[in-house]
Nucleic acid binder design. Structure first.
Lengths: 153, 153
DNA sequence: ACTCATTCTGAAAAATATTCTAATTACAAT
DNA sequence: ATTGTAATTAGAATATTTTTCAGAATGAGT
């Protein structure tokens, strides 16, 4: 789907604050409320906007420990890969998982309460999965930047 | 701030779809609209909910290339670290940046159009920063899971 | 039992989202 | 240039939702 400059400005603003009203958007972009409304609906219909979400502060819900975990599989046959990915998706501690290039096969972003909870996760969940070869954990000392907004301007 | 089960259910739902109406929430949780309204306002006031955002599909806005880039600094004096982090924050291609444990100092999640754009980014922006020792890039072959929602139940 | 603070309900008011009709614009084909 | 067609827009109406308000229920501490 093709996006003009107005679409991009709308997306830019919605990515930063999806609670902004159509009225405010319309005055900032010098368009009618209806024009804004129709454009947003079109962006939603075409799945340019995939969803609207509330972002929760991890520390406020007792999830202050973030880890990047790299994983190697023992085999790479299609069945193993499919099975592994299905199982990973089920784990709620895993916020993100990517199949990647390089020495390891996967990178996972994991969020838990603390180091102890991570140990539990590793022992009881992750290393219990079949086909896992080795893992390597990288702990987050401090977040420097964290955004979901893609720059479009 | 302390959260009861109702708060957690509200957060759970808002993390998945922040456009859900208070009326719908109220019927699903068997509370009045006002009760829901007040609870959400409290969650916002106390920054449990940090913001509401629209999520945009990267491919739809021509950003199909994601990379994890690990960085080592040449020195770790406070001034260097501060300066480096300030500069990283400015780069719109960098969606996330974490100070981490292990062999490298930082992990960055970078989103660009394609490999060529990534090369441009590396040459013109990243390696132009002072104090950078070495970098190592890991390319995303395929996303397996990607969510912003923290499981609270 | 009484007070205080918190959370709740239901109704009213204010603001916003959505629908509708018509006018305008953009653009391709002639 | 001009016609026709579709897409986009504006403005008014209607429908929904958010927000405010007053009063009732709840619970902890005295």
């Amino acid at each position: 789907m093709s996006l003009d400059e107005i679409d991009k400005k709308i997306l830019q603003k919605l990515q930063n604050d999806s609670k902004i009203t159509n009225k405010k958007l319309s005055s900032e972009l010098n368009l009618s409320v209806t024009a804004i409304f129709e454009r947003i609906k079109r962006l939603e219909r075409n799945r340019v906007i995939s969803r609207y979400v509330a972002l929760v502060k991890p520390a406020e819900v007792d999830r202050s420990f973030m880890v990047f975990c790299q994983i190697k599989l023992v085999q790479h046959s299609k069945n193993y890969v499919i099975k592994f990915e299905e199982e990973i998706i089920q784990l709620h501690e895993v916020l993100e998982c990517y199949h990647v290039s390089g020495e390891y096969d996967y990178i996972l972003k994991i969020l838990v309460k603390d180091m102890e909870a991570y140990r539990e996760f590793l022992l009881n969940k992750l290393t219990n999965l079949n086909h896992i070869g080795s893992t390597q954990s990288t702990f987050i000392i401090s977040p420097v930047k964290s955004t979901t907004a893609i720059d479009l301007l």
